[in-house]
């Protein structure tokens, strides 16, 4: 479950959003500049709301009235950025293992194998990020986020930097992820078709305000 009720002033732009969702994949839809990324960064704890609360899976991670702000590294979220952001000095296997090592989780070979199979990245393990294609990079970034065992997965336009062909290459993996990984997701996109395929619920943002909220049918 994800509950968001926040306000944030960013220069001239004001963001004010409130929604509660039990959905498996919450699609955050809006034009660029609508405040989608700021909202996701607040859920991740990278940005601090001026006022309000954020509750992830029953834990209050932000409550400005009570002075609560759980730092990003303790939120147990996974975040897939538009630009993958793989660590260039580590190979794919080390990138995948990073989250587990940092949070001191025991190694879980079964999950490791499952994620690598799910994303078809077994052949890439020895490579450096610089030697991967855009689509491969994004799949590794997905795997890296999943293997940190997050309770919520944030995907900020994960296909945004890819061309049409690459998008079609990654989309099936995301569908499988939704159906098999059993982790709630927030999926940010300005692409209606993408959200129709993936989202179970839609939060529509326009100029920093939630204009509609509901099933995929709000994407008319």
């Amino acid at each position: 479950m994800l509950r968001v009720d926040i306000e944030k002033q960013l220069g001239e732009f004001s963001l004010s959003a409130s929604f509660t969702s039990e959905g498996r994949v919450i699609g955050l839809f809006g034009a660029s500049g609508a405040g989608k990324s700021s909202l996701v960064n607040m859920i991740a704890g990278l940005l601090r709301p001026d006022r309000g609360t954020i509750v992830i899976d029953g834990e209050t991670v932000d409550d400005t009235a009570a002075g609560i702000h759980v730092p990003t590294y303790r939120r147990r979220i996974g975040y897939v950025f538009q630009d993958a952001r793989l660590f260039p000095h580590l190979n794919v296997a080390q990138n995948l293992d990073y989250g587990r090592r940092m949070s001191g989780l025991a190694s879980d070979p079964a999950q490791h194998t499952r994620v690598i199979d799910l994303l078809d990245i077994g052949a890439l393990l020895d490579r450096r990020p610089g030697k991967l294609s855009g689509g491969e990079r994004q799949r590794v970034a997905l795997g890296r986020a999943l293997l940190s065992k997050p309770r919520l997965l944030l995907l900020d336009e994960p296909l945004g930097a890819l061309d049409e062909g690459r998008k079609l290459e990654i989309l099936p993996y995301l569908v499988r992820l939704r159906d098999e990984a059993n982790i709630p997701m927030v999926y940010v996109s300005h692409d209606v078709a993408e959200l129709r395929q993936l989202a179970t619920q839609i939060v529509m943002l326009k100029q920093g305000r939630v204009t509609s909220f509901g099933g995929v049918k709000v994407l008319t």
Binding site: A44, L46, P71, T72, Y73, R74, R75, R76, I77, G78, Y79, F81, D83, R85, F87, P88, Y98, G99, M102, S103, R144, A145, S148, L154
Partner: peptide
């Protein structure tokens, strides 16, 4: 790129580990 450091933090790395 400080966004790499952000990514590390989202993966559970405390600032000194980052």
């Amino acid at each position: 790129d400080s966004r790499l450091e952000q990514a590390a933090e989202t993966l559970g790395a405390a600032p000194w580990k980052v």
